[in-house]
Structures are given as C-alpha cells and as structure tokens.
Design a protein around this nucleic acid. Structure first.
Lengths: 150, 150
DNA sequence: TATTGTTATACTCTATAACTATA
DNA sequence: TATAGTTATAGAGTATAACAATA
C-alpha cells in the first residue's frame, strides 16, 4: 500500500518561475545600470567579469558567452580600442589568440564588481543574515545543477 | 555588556551576490533560448509577457522596459509586422497609441510561458517541494523590496 | 580536413535629436 | 508649453557565410 503516486507536475512550484524570472530581470537591470555608468554593455561587463581571473582564447570566450566567434571579434575590438583588454598570439597554438585584461581594464573590473555588490546590497539586505545564508544555499544548489555556465 | 557592534559590512553575505548574478544569467539564457526558438529577442519576449494581461500605451510600455519611446516604435513595428500585436489609437487621449496582443500573439505568449516553465523545471526541481517553497518565499521578499519593476 | 580567427554583410536593438499632432 | 509618438540617424550587438592561416 505504499505506492506513492508521482503528482503529474511537470513544472515547478506555482509562482516560483515567475519569482525567479522577475528577480533575474531586476538583477540584470542593476548590472546594466552599473555597466552603463561606465559605458559598458551587459556583454562587455560579462567579458570583464570572465577575464578578471583568467586569460582565455577568443573561442573559449565565445563559448562562455554563448556567442559566435565572429561576434567576439567586434566585441574584443571595441574593448581593446578602449584600452580595457589586450590580444596576444597563443604560445601553444599558432591559430589562436589569447585575450586578457589590461591593467586599466583590471581596475575597471574591480570597481564594477564592488559597485554591483553595493547596488544589490539594499535589496539582499532585506532578508537579514539568516535569510541571506538560506537564499545563497538554495541558489548554489540550483547553480550546481545548471548545465549552461556563465 | 550586551553592546553588539554592527559589523562594518556594506555588502551582502559573501557569495550571495555572485550566486544571484549567476542564477540570473542562467535564467536569462533560458529565456533567450526559448525566445530564439520563436525568433524573438529577450525584449520581444518581455513585451509579449507584459501584454499578456494588459493593453497599454506606447509610453507605458517604454517605462516598463526602461527604454526610450523611439526604441518602442521600432520594436512594436517589427512585432506588429509579424502579426504578434496591434496598435490602436487611444480612446481617451488623441495623442496616445494603445498596444495589445493579437489573437496569434496571445497564442505565442501562452506557449512561450509554458515553455519557460518547462525549461526551468529541471533546475528548480533540484530543490524538492520544500526547498522550492523556501526559495520562492525568499525571492518574493526581495521582489517586494525592488523599486525597478519588470 | 578541421579549427581559429577575421572580414563582409545584414538585421535588430538602442539612444539622441528634430519633428508633428494633440493636450 | 508640455506630452505622445514617429522619423532620421548613428553606433553597438548579433548571426551567417566566405576566407586565410595553422593544425
């Protein structure tokens, strides 16, 4: 008699997806705004974030962002022209090009990161320390599952 | 001796912002992908989402999205040309133009919504029912605070 | 042959500035 | 005068297709 019927639910808890989508739009709006204050698009912001602790080749960067290599060329062109990052031929593969932050770009990246934290703090602060820890724990479980990366 | 010093923390719980940003990028990637399968940008997706249960004027739509009115013109032009939504002069203000979903657009919007739920379900399902409820509750607290809307 | 990156091209998204019509 | 929307223009972001250089 212990037969437990799976509820025929294919989707998440009612309302959870809405909440997730809404909070994501809010977070993106904050990121966009911080970026805009430095004349950076969301994508450029991500590039700086990715390169904060890595030196990667063009194709890898395209993979991280989910963009075509041809798109990367223009993106990196513009950022390079502004002195935020630099290109260098790969030592191990004559076809490849490595991309990395310039000293100035690293400065900007650090400032951006701090500013994002400050901008989101008023919102996350609503939860109090215990709520923040619980939220972080739940989000990290979700991230662990994810197969897309970012 | 019960003097409790406030820690000089201006930012959120270490790691929470990272988690929030990461999960937001994942969510946006899912939304983008679902939209792309219908040849819709993230912005077009949002427009359909907003109009799902509302008829609004151009300027209001621009406010919701945080975009200029001139940007709305092109956005609505393209969606209208594809038969997703329609324009009509406002009854109460001779200058204003109302925008609303066409029957076909409403169909697409419903399908998109269902697809987003299905696409996110494998991830949110990781938490189990109790975790999902806790996450939803925490996210809704954050949304309640937000001053940007979306 | 396959892969890496760039170039050429085209379309979408976005903003600023100038304009028309209505309030 | 101020507001709603469009048009004109320009730049960024994006993809597809064709190409050169290297593996």
């Amino acid at each position: 008699m212990a037969t437990r019927e799976e509820p025929p639910r294919v989707v998440a808890q009612e309302g959870l997806v809405d909440a997730l989508v809404q909070i994501s739009f809010v977070t993106m709006a904050v990121l966009s705004k911080v970026g805009a204050e430095h004349d950076l698009s969301l994508t450029q912001l991500r590039v700086l974030g990715i390169l904060r602790d890595r030196r990667v080749r063009m194709s890898r960067l395209a993979d991280y962002l989910g963009l075509e290599k041809s798109t990367m060329t223009g993106l990196v062109d513009r950022a390079e022209k502004r002195g935020l990052l630099e290109r260098a031929p790969s030592a191990s593969d004559g076809r490849a090009v490595d991309v990395f932050l310039s000293p100035g770009g690293a400065d900007v990246a650090e400032r951006l990161y701090a500013q994002v934290e400050r901008s989101l703090a008023p919102m996350t602060g609503e939860l109090g320390p215990a709520g923040q820890r619980r939220l972080q724990s739940l989000l990290e479980q979700l991230i662990g599952f994810d197969s897309l990366g970012g």
